[in-house]
Amino acid sequence: MPAAASLLIVEDEPKIARLMADYLQTHGFETATLDNGNAVMPWLETHTPALILLDLMLPGEDGLSLCRRIRQRYPQTAIIMVTAKVEEVDRLLGLELGADDYICKPFSPREVVARVKAVLRRSQAPQDTPLAVDDPAGPVRLDEEGWQAVADGQDLGLTAVEFQLLRVMMRAPGRIFSREQLMDHMYRDNRIVSERTVDSHVKKLRKKISEVLPERDIIRSVYGVGYKYQPDE
């Protein structure tokens, strides 16, 4: 992770925005701050942040809508949602939006820095081993340098978490991974993530694959056990 990674903070409460910016800058990050949702998409046309800290409740366009649009247009940009609405967490990390992580208010500045570093490690870490499966005739090809998954010549538009999830299963075709094993591979900072969150990411990954390969069911659910990548059936 580069020491001067660029971050965008989208937060309409000045004290919170300033606190996050000051603490992140102290830890070597470059930050920019916006306080209105309507300013985000125009700003992204001329800037490329590594990660966006995106508040849920904003004047102008709200955080949920923005997360969806950013994910569609800039799939490789990591997003951490900031929310005081705990009941929204499943939506933030799940099927609709696919945010990479979330922070609940009130939070400590240390937690913000830890979450930012963890997400950037997962989304930017170089790979030290090749894929076990690299068959040109396979249904999905992974470009590990570009963090892209391609099926039938089309980029699946995976988020960093979805790409990581698919890559783990593609390394061992036919092997059944439990939810706990997938969490261990995906979240190496040992933070607590619910099994339901893994299910949500898998469901969204399968949906993206089925949109391009409607006749193939290559991510299989094994009831009561977990998931596996099965390209041969």
Results as ranks from 00 to 15, higher is better:
residue 176 I to E: 12
residue 124 Q to V: 06
residue 175 R to S: 09
residue 145 E to F: 03
residue 114 A to Q: 15
residue 142 L to T: 15
residue 169 M to W: 02
residue 153 G to C: 00
residue 161 V to C: 03
residue 134 D to V: 07
residue 139 P to E: 14
residue 130 P to Q: 13
residue 175 R to Y: 06
residue 151 A to E: 12
residue 137 A to L: 10
residue 166 L to F: 07
residue 125 A to C: 10
residue 182 L to Y: 01
residue 129 T to S: 13
residue 165 L to D: 03
residue 162 E to H: 09
residue 132 A to N: 14
residue 116 V to T: 11
residue 126 P to A: 08
residue 180 E to L: 07
residue 147 W to V: 09
residue 173 P to S: 15
residue 180 E to T: 14
residue 177 F to K: 04
residue 154 Q to D: 09
residue 155 D to F: 07
residue 177 F to C: 12
residue 151 A to C: 07
residue 178 S to L: 03
residue 116 V to L: 09
residue 123 S to D: 05
residue 116 V to F: 05
residue 169 M to L: 14
residue 140 V to P: 00
residue 152 D to G: 00
residue 140 V to I: 15
residue 156 L to P: 02
residue 115 R to C: 13
residue 129 T to C: 08
residue 149 A to C: 10
residue 154 Q to H: 09
residue 166 L to W: 02
residue 136 P to I: 03
residue 165 L to W: 07
residue 121 R to K: 13
residue 157 G to E: 04
residue 141 R to D: 12
residue 154 Q to C: 10
residue 140 V to H: 01
residue 145 E to K: 15
residue 157 G to H: 02
residue 162 E to P: 08
residue 123 S to L: 05
residue 180 E to M: 05
residue 177 F to M: 10
residue 117 K to R: 13
residue 140 V to S: 04
residue 160 A to G: 15
residue 150 V to S: 06
residue 153 G to D: 02
residue 132 A to Q: 14
residue 171 R to Q: 15
residue 179 R to G: 12
residue 169 M to E: 08
residue 158 L to I: 12
residue 179 R to A: 08
residue 153 G to E: 00
residue 135 D to M: 01
residue 156 L to T: 01
residue 161 V to Q: 04
residue 135 D to V: 00
residue 139 P to D: 13
residue 166 L to H: 05
residue 123 S to E: 05
residue 157 G to I: 02
residue 141 R to E: 12
residue 142 L to E: 11
residue 152 D to P: 00
residue 121 R to N: 08
residue 116 V to Y: 03
residue 139 P to L: 10
residue 128 D to P: 01
residue 146 G to K: 12
residue 116 V to P: 10
residue 169 M to I: 15
residue 182 L to V: 06
residue 143 D to G: 00
residue 133 V to T: 13
residue 119 V to M: 08
residue 179 R to T: 15
residue 158 L to G: 00
residue 163 F to M: 10
residue 177 F to N: 09
residue 114 A to T: 14
residue 150 V to I: 15
residue 128 D to A: 09
